[in-house]
Lab assay of single mutants.
Amino acid sequence: KEMRNAYWEIALLPNLNNQQKRAFIRSLYDDPSQSANLLAEAKKLNDAQA
């Protein structure tokens, strides 16, 4: 469930391009235990690109 939530949050971040989203989501599938960390990194990048 945590992975699914992280997937959708990443997919809906407005300032990431599709390539960036795909990279984060690929990492999510590679290591679901890192969901919270990956989401935090994606949000950080999203904010930096705002």
Rank of each mutant, 00 (worst) to 15 (best):
R22H: 15
L28F: 03
D30I: 08
L12N: 15
L38P: 01
K1I: 12
E41S: 08
Q19L: 09
A6P: 10
A6T: 08
A11V: 12
P14S: 05
D30W: 06
R22K: 08
A23I: 14
D31Y: 08
P32A: 04
I10G: 01
A48G: 08
S35G: 09
L45A: 04
K21T: 02
N5H: 14
K43Y: 08
I10L: 08
I10Q: 00
K21G: 00
M3W: 07
L13K: 02
K21E: 01
E9P: 02
I10T: 00
N5R: 14
D47N: 06
R4Y: 15
Q49V: 08
I25C: 04
E9K: 08
L45M: 08
K21Y: 02
L16Y: 00
S33I: 04
I10D: 00
S27P: 02
E41N: 12
L28H: 01
L39V: 11
N37W: 09
Q19I: 09
L28Q: 01
L16M: 02
R26M: 15
N5W: 10
L13I: 01
Y7K: 10
P32W: 09
K44S: 12
Y7W: 14
P14R: 05
R4Q: 13
Q34M: 11
L13F: 05
D30N: 10
R26E: 15
R26I: 14
L45H: 03
Q20R: 02
N37T: 06
D30F: 08
A40I: 10
R26Y: 11
K44I: 09
Q19A: 10
R4N: 14
A11Y: 13
F24K: 03
R4P: 14
L38I: 14
K1D: 14
K1C: 15
A23W: 10
L13M: 13
Q34L: 08
N18Q: 12
Q49E: 05
A36N: 09
W8E: 12
N5Q: 14
M3S: 12
N5P: 06
K21F: 02
S35A: 10
Q49R: 15
D31T: 07
L45N: 02
N46W: 01
F24P: 01
K44H: 08
A48L: 10
A6S: 09
N18G: 11
A48S: 10
A48F: 10
Y7M: 14
K44T: 05
D30Q: 12
L38E: 01
D31M: 06
S35F: 08
R26L: 15
E41T: 08
A40D: 11
L16P: 00
N15H: 10
N5K: 15
N46A: 03
I25F: 15
E9W: 07
K44D: 06
E41M: 10
M3F: 07
A23Q: 12
A40H: 10
Q20C: 07
L12R: 14
S27T: 06
I10F: 02
L28K: 00
W8Y: 14
R4M: 15
S27C: 05
E9A: 10
L13A: 05
K44Y: 06
M3C: 13
